[in-house]
Amino acid sequence: MAAAAAAGAGPEMVRGQVFDVGPRYTNLSYIGEGAYGMVCSAYDNVNKVRVAIKKISPFEHQTYCQRTLREIKILLRFRHENIIGINDIIRAPTIEQMKDVYIVQDLMETDLYKLLKTQHLSNDHICYFLYQILRGLKYIHSANVLHRDLKPSNLLLNTTCDLKICDFGLARVADPDHDHTGFLTEYVATRWYRAPEIMLNSKGYTKSIDIWSVGCILAEMLSNRPIFPGKHYLDQLNHILGILGSPSQEDLNCIINLKARNYLLSLPHKNKVPWNRLFPNADSKALDLLDKMLTFNPHKRIEVEQALAHPYLEQYYDPSDEPIAEAPFKFDMELDDLPKEKLKELIFEETARFQPGYRS
């Protein structure tokens, strides 16, 4: 834990890192770190609560700039109880001085990944967590956004079992017609939660990839272990087919990539493993919904509104309290091709509203 900075004593240090967030945020305490930044909790002297502050230093890398800009653009436009918001952003007053960006968010005690390492969940908890994931996802999908990296560590939890989806750095506007060349190379989302079509096709992607990830998360809540822990690309596919069985001819016809289709045709026939054999203690309604989410063919996979209306979630289902976005989200430009200098300018502009004396 960093010592509390005395008023006016300059930035606090946390594990050798400068955290320049005073005077409003003090009493910093280390939480963890990701690929390009550290997260601390801090005391907000204005709202009198502890908050989470993520320090991001992305400006050396085009990919990190892209992810940072995506996350900020999306989260500043989203407003939903099951999606983490941005409360404040701290950065230098000029673009030349801006080396880091500090993002202030609600402090959540833990995440689903940490929880599943230590606790076996009751059916009631599984049901409530799944409902909140789908409630947040309904809003995301209504904005025409794909999260693309749903996994237990991106689901934040607090002691009252509130759940918030975080990390929109890989999110995209849904565009089933656009052929994202190089899709697989830039697709760094965790393999275990990846839909089979991501490994088999490169053309376009749809909201059904997020539903697949939610199915993987439900299976993990039922058993405290990942359902498809593939060691590499082909191993991942083999794990999936080992449980779902061989795809039907109709399902194979959806695979545009001939090499991928021929690979699947070359494999020995596998039978589907019954879900109640894998999860003998699970609620039968939970397994019915799991089956509809972990469907090989993305066109037959359940959609988020149908999933919310499934009998497993009937005690929570309330369409009048499951809000959607006001308007579909649009990125003005494809960020993939922009140089990091341009992305830095866009991050600077996007964060201006939090600067003292800002006038829109």
Rank of each mutant, 00 (worst) to 15 (best):
Y193I: 02
K270V: 14
N144R: 05
F59R: 12
G169T: 11
K342Q: 08
L308H: 11
N144V: 05
E350G: 14
M199I: 00
I56M: 11
S202P: 11
K151G: 03
T185A: 02
Y131L: 11
R191M: 04
Q249R: 06
L200R: 03
L335V: 14
H61C: 06
D321S: 14
L241G: 04
F331A: 15
C161P: 14
V46C: 12
N238R: 08
G32N: 13
Y193R: 01
H178F: 08
S122E: 08
P298M: 12
R225G: 09
V101N: 04
I90H: 14
Y64E: 10
G169E: 05
E349I: 15
Q315C: 15
H239N: 00
A92Y: 15
Y358E: 06
I89P: 12
R24F: 14
Y312E: 02
N224D: 09
D288M: 12
I217W: 03
I243K: 15
L121H: 09
G245D: 02
E220A: 01
C127G: 11
L115S: 15
G136C: 07
L69Q: 01
V49F: 14
R79H: 12
G230K: 11
Y263I: 08
F329W: 14
R353E: 09
L346Y: 08
A189S: 01
A174T: 01
I243T: 11
T295N: 04
V214H: 01
M333V: 10
R135L: 03
N224A: 13
C65M: 10
E303W: 13
L137G: 04
R67D: 14
K54E: 03
L134W: 03
E71L: 06
L264C: 11
T26R: 10
I31V: 15
F348P: 07
Y113T: 13
K285S: 13
P319Q: 00
H310I: 03
E186A: 06
I90R: 15
I240G: 06
I302W: 11
S320F: 08
Y316S: 15
I53D: 07
E197H: 04
A3E: 11
V49K: 12
L313R: 07
P152M: 04
S122Y: 09
L184I: 03
F348G: 08
E334S: 13
L289Q: 01
R77P: 11
I211L: 04
V188Y: 11
D251N: 03
D288K: 09
P176F: 07
P319I: 10
I347V: 10
M293G: 05
H125F: 05
P298W: 12
A143W: 13
V49T: 12
L28D: 14
A171V: 03
N154T: 01
E326T: 14
W212T: 03
S57A: 14
V173D: 06
K207M: 00
M333W: 09
L335Q: 01
P268S: 01
Y36D: 10
P196M: 01
E12M: 13
D167L: 10
K117W: 10
L278M: 05
P328H: 00
P196Q: 02
G357H: 13
K73M: 02
E197N: 03
G136E: 01
A309D: 08
L155M: 01
I133K: 06
A4R: 05
C127R: 06
A325S: 02
R172C: 04
H80N: 06
E326L: 13
A286M: 14
C161M: 06
H269D: 07
I95P: 14
V46F: 06
E71H: 10
V51N: 15
I209A: 04
E314L: 14
K207I: 10
N281C: 12
L69M: 00
Q315T: 10
L313D: 04
E349K: 02
N276V: 13
T118H: 11
A4S: 04
G182R: 00
S153L: 04
P319W: 10
K342C: 13
I83R: 09
E334R: 12
P268H: 01
F228M: 11
C254D: 12
H141M: 09
M108W: 12
Q355V: 12
E341K: 02
N262G: 10
N27H: 08
I95W: 10
A189V: 10
I198G: 08
F354R: 06
K300R: 01
N87W: 15
Y358A: 10
E109W: 10
A42M: 11
V145R: 05
A42L: 13
H147T: 08
R135V: 13
M293D: 02
Y43F: 03
L258M: 01
Y113H: 08
D177A: 00
T351D: 13
Y43C: 06
C166L: 03
E314Q: 13
T63P: 03
K151Y: 05
P274I: 13
E12C: 10
K203V: 02
A309Y: 14
L137C: 12
Y43P: 09
A195N: 10
S284G: 12
R353F: 13
T110I: 06
S248V: 09
V46H: 14
G357S: 05
S57C: 11
Q119Y: 09
S41R: 13
G32L: 04
H141K: 08
G85K: 13
S202F: 04
C65Y: 04
A189C: 09
G204D: 13
K164S: 09
A171M: 06
T110A: 04
S41W: 09
N87V: 15
P93M: 12
N276R: 11
F329M: 10
Q249Y: 13
L200P: 03
V49N: 14
E12L: 04
L115M: 07
S29V: 11
Q97L: 00
L116I: 12
T110S: 00
L121K: 06
D251Q: 09
Q236C: 05
A4C: 15
A174H: 11
S248W: 08
Y113A: 10
E250D: 04
D291N: 03
H120L: 00
V18Y: 14
K270Y: 13
F168C: 08
D337N: 01
R24H: 06
L170I: 09
E96H: 15
I227M: 12
